[in-house]
Amino acid sequence: MRRTERYKVHHKANSLWQMYSTVSFFKIVKNFIVIQVARYTPFLRMKNWLYRHLLRMKVGERTSFALMAMPDSMFPEKIKVGDNSIIGYNTTILAHEYLITEYRLGEVHIGNEVMIGANSTILPGVHIGDGAIVSAATLVHKDVPAGAFAGGNPMRIIYTKEEMESRQSPDGHEGRNS
C-alpha cells in the first residue's frame, strides 16, 4: 500500500485546476527549469548538485540519474534516493497525483544500491528497499522489498531477495539452470 495523504477538492473543476493553491506558480517554474537543465546535462555531479541544492531532494553519494530522468516538478523535496543507486533513462519519479475529486501527496524513498530500469514510473508514497532491482518500463505502484527483483505493468515481485541469492552460484555468477 502506498503512503499518500489525500486532499479533497470541493470545486466543480478537477483538482489540477487548483494546483496553484497547493504549490506556488513560481516554485513550479523554477523547478521545471532546473529539471530540464538536469535532464539534459551529461555531468552527474552537476545533476546531483542541482537536485540537492535547488530542488531540495535528498540524493546520496555516487547516485546516478540517467539522461532524461524526470523527478517530480511540484514536490521534488519529497524524493529521497540513497547512495550508489541508478535511476534509468527517462524514468519518472512522482510525489504527487492530481485526480478528479482529490489530489495525493506522498514521499518516495529509494534505497542504497538500487537499480531502476529505463522508462519506469514510480508513483507517490512508494518505498524501494536497498539493493532492489526494478526492470525497465515498470509502473512501481507499491513497495519493493530490499534485494528483490520487480517488473511489469502492473508491477509484481519476480524474485525475492532470497530467491535472487539462491540463483547465484558460490562464485557470484548465475547458475546454469537460470
Rank of each mutant, 00 (worst) to 15 (best):
R2M: 07
R3M: 08
T4P: 09
E5G: 00
E5V: 08
Y7D: 02
A13C: 07
A13G: 09
A13Q: 12
A13L: 13
N14S: 12
N14K: 09
L16A: 14
W17A: 01
Q18R: 07
S21G: 04
S21L: 02
F25E: 06
F26K: 07
K30Y: 05
K30R: 11
K30F: 04
F32M: 08
V34K: 00
Q36P: 09
V37A: 02
F43L: 13
F43R: 07
M46S: 04
K47T: 07
N48Y: 12
L50F: 12
Y51G: 10
Y51S: 10
Y51V: 08
R52A: 07
L55G: 12
R56E: 15
M57W: 05
M57E: 05
K58F: 03
V59P: 06
V59C: 04
E61P: 09
S64L: 10
A66F: 07
L67Y: 15
D72R: 05
K78D: 04
K78Y: 08
K80A: 15
G82F: 00
I86C: 09
N90T: 08
N90W: 02
N90R: 06
T92S: 10
I93S: 12
I93D: 13
A95L: 09
I100N: 15
T101L: 05
Y103S: 03
E107A: 04
V108D: 03
I110F: 12
G111W: 05
E113R: 11
M115N: 07
N119W: 04
S120E: 01
T121L: 01
L123Q: 12
G125M: 14
I128C: 11
G129S: 06
G131R: 00
G131K: 02
G131F: 00
A132F: 03
A132E: 08
A132W: 02
V134Q: 03
S135D: 06
S135I: 04
H141T: 13
V144W: 01
V144Y: 01
A150N: 05
G151Y: 00
N153I: 14
N153W: 11
R156E: 12
I157G: 09
I158L: 05
K161C: 10
M164L: 00
M164K: 01
S166N: 09
S166R: 08
Q168Y: 13
G172Y: 02
H173V: 08
N177K: 08
S178Y: 15
